[in-house]
């Protein structure tokens, strides 16, 4: 535990000072700020940020994460030659990567809200889901980044994998769902589709925000099935839990690979 904290301390120093994280924070800040200046009130800004959170945050997390772990490879070996356990070293490395990215997101998006948004009760729901989604997606995709970079010694493979996984989750997955829906139109598909949605972190993040903005539509048609599942607090907890699981699984895998790996 102490090893983890010690590693984390210096990793934080290092990652926080990295230019990429600075640029990421600044980009999120400027974008949110501009949305406020042009779009106006809070709920609409949250809506405009939806795609940023669902696409950009995972992309940055997985690509920056993978590159970072590769660039730290030699130093990681030096650390491994110190009298420390691999498990705690791994935890320190992961947190040292994920926390600055999560912080960058919080700061970059949160600050403009603190400056511009009026404190209305109606904004809390959408805003909390925006942050919950953004943070969980950061943790999920940095965990994926760790796994890829540790699994593949070849950087091109790891980075390619990162982009593929992002593309898969962000775009292709929904295309496949749509294809399945049109192919099996005569079957009741609500439940299978629901299950498929639970497997993709980006879809889960999207559903969290759908529940804030599109309840009226979800109540229509068979959509009510989705609303009935996700709209309850149980459903919401399920979504958050599923996201937490999706961060944990690649993380545990990465940790296992890391502990057994020959460097």
């Amino acid at each position: 535990m102490t090893t983890t904290v010690r590693v984390l301390k210096y990793e934080l120093h290092n990652v926080v000072r990295s230019r990429a994280v600075l640029v990421y924070t600044l980009f999120l800040f400027l974008l949110t700020d501009v949305l406020f200046r042009f779009g106006g009130e809070g709920a609409r800004v949250v809506l405009s940020l939806l795609n940023v959170v669902l696409l950009f945050v995972p992309l940055v997390s997985v690509v920056f994460g993978t590159m970072y772990v590769y660039s730290a490879r030699e130093f990681t070996e030096l650390l491994l030659a110190q009298p420390v356990g691999r498990r705690s070293l791994f935890a320190g490395l992961y947190l040292g990567l994920a926390l600055p990215l999560a912080g960058a997101f919080l700061l970059g998006v949160g600050l403009p809200f603190a400056i511009h948004a009026k404190a209305e009760a109606a904004l809390w729901g959408p805003l909390s889901m925006l942050f919950a989604g953004g943070l969980l997606l950061t943790f999920v995709f940095t965990a994926v980044a760790m796994l890829l970079a540790i699994l593949f010694d070849d950087r091109a493979k790891g980075l390619g994998g990162a982009i593929l996984i992002w593309l898969g989750c962000a775009v292709l997955y929904d295309g496949v769902i749509l294809l399945l829906i049109t192919m099996f139109r005569e079957y009741p598909l609500e439940r299978p589709v629901l299950a498929l949605t639970l497997l993709n972190p980006i879809d889960l993040g999207r559903v969290l925000l759908l529940l804030q903005f599109d309840t009226a539509a979800l109540m229509g048609y068979t959509g009510a099935v989705f609303e009935k599942f996700f709209g309850t607090s149980l459903g919401r907890v399920t979504v958050l839990l599923a996201l937490a699981v999706q961060a944990t699984v690649p993380l545990l895998l990465a940790s296992r690979v890391f502990r057994r790996k020959d460097f």
Binding site: A170, D174, I177, V193, D214, L218, Y221
Partner: peptide, 20 residues
């Protein structure tokens, strides 16, 4: 139109793929 023909596809609302 998709939603009108295949109702379960409503779950893909605001998906980037659908935006495309």
């Amino acid at each position: 139109l998709l939603v009108a023909q295949h109702e379960p596809s409503l779950i893909l609302l605001r998906s980037f793929f659908v935006d495309l």
